[in-house]
Design a protein around this nucleic acid. Sequence first.
DNA 1: GTCTATACAGCGATAGAC
DNA 2: GTCTATCGCTGTATAGAC
Lengths: 209, 209
Amino acid sequence: MGQDETQQSDTATRILDVAERLVEVRGFNGFSYADVSSELNITNAALHYHFANKSDLGVALIIRYTSRFDDALSTVDARSTDAPERLKAYADLYLDVLRGKRMCLCGMMAAELETLPEPMQAAVLEFFTRNQAWLSRVLKEGHAKGTISFSASPNKTARTIIGTLEGAMLLARLFGDVAGFRSATTHLLAGLRPEPSEFNSGKLRVSQS
Amino acid sequence: MGQDETQQSDTATRILDVAERLVEVRGFNGFSYADVSSELNITNAALHYHFANKSDLGVALIIRYTSRFDDALSTVDARSTDAPERLKAYADLYLDVLRGKRMCLCGMMAAELETLPEPMQAAVLEFFTRNQAWLSRVLKEGHAKGTISFSASPNKTARTIIGTLEGAMLLARLFGDVAGFRSATTHLLAGLRPEPSEFNSGKLRVSQS
DNA sequence: GTCTATACAGCGATAGAC
DNA sequence: GTCTATCGCTGTATAGAC
């Protein structure tokens, strides 16, 4: 999100911004160089100066997106050490993306995977692998503290979480219903609650807000 | 067009078979008439005879897919009256699709939704609406019998189930790991087990809608 | 870094013979 | 119902001037 460190030219950044939105709405195969260049009032050729071919552009999009996600996860880590809270914050990251009929950039590309150039496929896989690793770590920590409970392995459970959120985005966009996404998130997190027997036996108080 | 009421010509059927596989692997925007015709050793023009334009072909694909799903749901209904068993059977339907790097036809099209002709969009929505209605009915019946428990509305919970399965397919294909799909299914169904009482951990807000 | 101009392949779709 | 032939358009990509 910073604009200074590893930063490319202003034009390159604006190209990525426009292209990212187009991918998140229409998919990587659903937009053209002309779509981007016309919106920025530059020419097709100028676009090719910054990103020689569409595969390069695609890889750049994924890398930037992954980097932003990494930053966001670091922020989540810094904000709380509580596993359930971290998972909730993780889910909320997806909620931020789900605006204006957008899908997750990498979720979209995961659907189109078989049509993508190999470098893009590898980058997409890397994105989800990192997400899985972060979630897996949080799940393990939560399990150790007894604030989280799950029956499959941390890695598989992490994958289930990612899949649930990606699927929820897909349907929320389809039905034009963001509330449905929140509902799915709630259900997901509820399924990770620690078992009453492990946590607190007998009758339980309900701490509803 | 038809040889009898429900059956189209052999060629039309084979076109649909090939096109369906192509969509499930590459997406609707990821295949061309040439891909289909070359595989069937017929010409582009012959394909246009059976399906005048690509939108017609797309709608035909969705309708046939929806019809097959409806039949499968009827079979599930006939096989058991137990809600958890029906849900398990529902999840297994998706498992059947998840072979050879395939996605659910309509899940794929849901991702590409914004690029699809309007008649196809409507047909995709219809598919998911029917699925939601069936699941919602099963959930209600399960709730009435006390074999199923959920906190959101039946419709929202149904949508969550669909989203979870679609997302699980997406990731299972990405990671080349069908076992991950089974794991997600198990987690999903476990989250619907009847519970002795409503319960909140105190860290997680489980809000009702 | 951006332009004009263009190459060239692929796409969906149509006309008309058989 | 299937063919050959072809059209018009859009796509990615490049060459070379400024």
